[in-house]
Amino acid sequence: MADRPGFRRQYDAGLHLLDRQIVGRDGLPVAKVDDLELRVRADGRLAVSALLVGPGALGPRVGGRLGRWTVSIWRRLRPDADPPTGRVDATLVTGTDSAVHVTATTEELGLDGFERWVRRYVVEPIPGSGHDGS
């Protein structure tokens, strides 16, 4: 694992992880790293335990009134009373280059709620939504 290209022994979590693009196993974009979840290891040092994604994680980092609005609108639009923040476990990360690569896809991670909603109610009803433009 350690000699994989794009796998670092040391990294600056703020510089190499925060706000980077997460790319899934299928090579498609998953989301941005909106925040990080840290845990204290047995030796007292901090380690990243998960990448946090979605408005619930981004809002507090934006801060101020805009940040609070982001979080409360997101909560209001979610069906559950206390929605969990989107999470990608650190064990899924295979390496970082200009993006953070993970072994799952957006669908498997269950991070595509908004995308699925837009697809179902806005895009799919329009004819021709299944044809690519390549």
């Binding site: 699925r116 837009v118 697809r119 895009v123 799919e124 021709g128 939504s129």
Partner: peptide, 9 residues
């Protein structure tokens, strides 16, 4: 390059 339903947002 992807179909609209793949990039719905």
């Amino acid at each position: 390059f992807v179909a609209p339903r793949q990039a719905a947002r």
